[in-house]
C-alpha cells in the first residue's frame, strides 16, 4: 500500500503563496475578513510560516509552507473524543466535519498547530465570484478542519486506476498546492515506491522533517541546504 508523502524544497520555494491560494480554491476554505484574521482566526490549510533572522539592516526572511503533516502516529487522532479526526485506510489523517463536536482538543494536541476552526459561520466569495469545488464538502460553524492532502483527488484517481486495473502512477495523484507551485518546489507521491521522485528526495542529504524527536513521524519532508530550520 502506498504511503503518501510530500517533499517541499525550501531552496526552490520563493514564498510566493500560490500554494495557499490554490489550496483555498480547491478545498472551499472559508474567506475570513481582515479584522478576524488580525484576531488570529485566519483559515489556511496550507499555511506560510514567516520568520525573521538577524537585525536591521541584515535581516533575513525565511518562508516555509506548512500543510498538515499527516503523521504516521498523529497526536490529534488519539485525543479526539468522537473519532472525528482519524487515519484513513490510505494513511491520510482525515476530518469528519459532521461528527466533530468542536471541542478543539485536536488543535491543542497538534504540536504543529496546523488545524483551524470555524469560529463563525464560514463565508466565501459571493455573487459571480462564487465558485465551489463540488468534490469537497463545505464546512459549517463550530468544527475543526485542516489540510487533507486533497484526499478527494485520490478517491477519483483510485477509481480510475481500479477500472484500468493498474497501480497509481507516480505523479498521478498530486494535491492542488503541488500542482500550482510555479517554482516546482512541492513534490508529492508514494514515499515507499523506490522509483518515485519523493522517495529519492526524501533520502537526500538536504532532507529533514520538523521536530522528528517527537516521534510522531510526519509525512512531509523539507529540503534545505541550510542547517538551522
Amino acid at each position: 500500500m502506498p504511503k503518501w508523502a510530500m517533499v517541499i524544497d525550501l531552496d526552490k520555494c520563493t514564498g510566493c503563496g500560490a500554494c495557499q491560494a490554490a489550496c483555498k480554491m480547491e478545498n472551499n476554505v472559508a474567506i475570513v475578513s481582515p479584522d478576524e484574521a488580525q484576531q488570529g482566526r485566519v483559515m489556511f490549510w496550507m499555511d506560510m510560516i514567516v520568520t525573521y533572522e538577524g537585525s536591521y539592516p541584515n535581516v533575513h526572511e525565511k518562508r516555509m509552507p506548512k500543510p498538515c503533516f499527516h503523521c504516521e502516529n498523529p497526536p490529534c487522532t488519539k485525543v479526539c473524543p468522537v473519532g472525528a479526526t482519524y487515519r484513513n485506510e490510505d494513511g491520510l489523517v482525515g476530518q469528519i466535519y459532521h461528527r466533530c463536536i468542536g471541542c478543539r482538543y485536536c488543535m491543542v494536541a497538534c504540536p504543529f498547530t496546523v488545524k483551524v476552526f470555524n469560529w463563525k459561520a464560514p463565508k466565501w466569495l459571493d455573487g459571480k465570484l462564487e465558485c465551489f469545488n463540488p468534490d469537497v464538502s463545505r464546512r459549517m460553524a463550530g468544527v475543526v478542519e485542516k489540510c487533507s492532502f486533497c484526499a478527494h483527488r485520490l478517491m477519483n484517481i483510485k477509481e480510475e486506476a481500479d477500472r484500468e486495473d493498474r497501480p497509481i502512477r507516480d505523479g498521478e495523484y498530486v494535491p492542488a498546492c503541488a500542482e500550482s507551485c510555479p517554482a516546482d518546489a512541492i513534490y508529492f507521491g508514494d514515499v515507499e515506491n523506490k522509483q518515485s521522485v519523493v522517495y529519492k528526495l526524501s533520502r537526500s542529504y538536504r532532507a529533514f522533517r520538523v521536530m522528528e524527536d517527537l516521534g510522531v513521524e510526519p509525512n512531509v519532508y523539507y529540503l534545505s541546504k541550510r542547517v538551522s530550520w
Binding site: V79, C80, V82, G83, I101
Partner: peptide, 20 residues
C-alpha cells in the same frame, strides 16, 4: 463546544482512548 448540538456524539461514537 463549537457544536453543543452534537454533544450526544460522545455516546454514539465515543472513543475511550480520548482523555475527554
Amino acid at each position: 463546544l463549537g457544536r453543543p448540538d452534537r454533544l450526544l456524539h460522545i455516546y454514539e461514537s465515543g472513543r475511550l482512548q480520548s482523555p475527554l
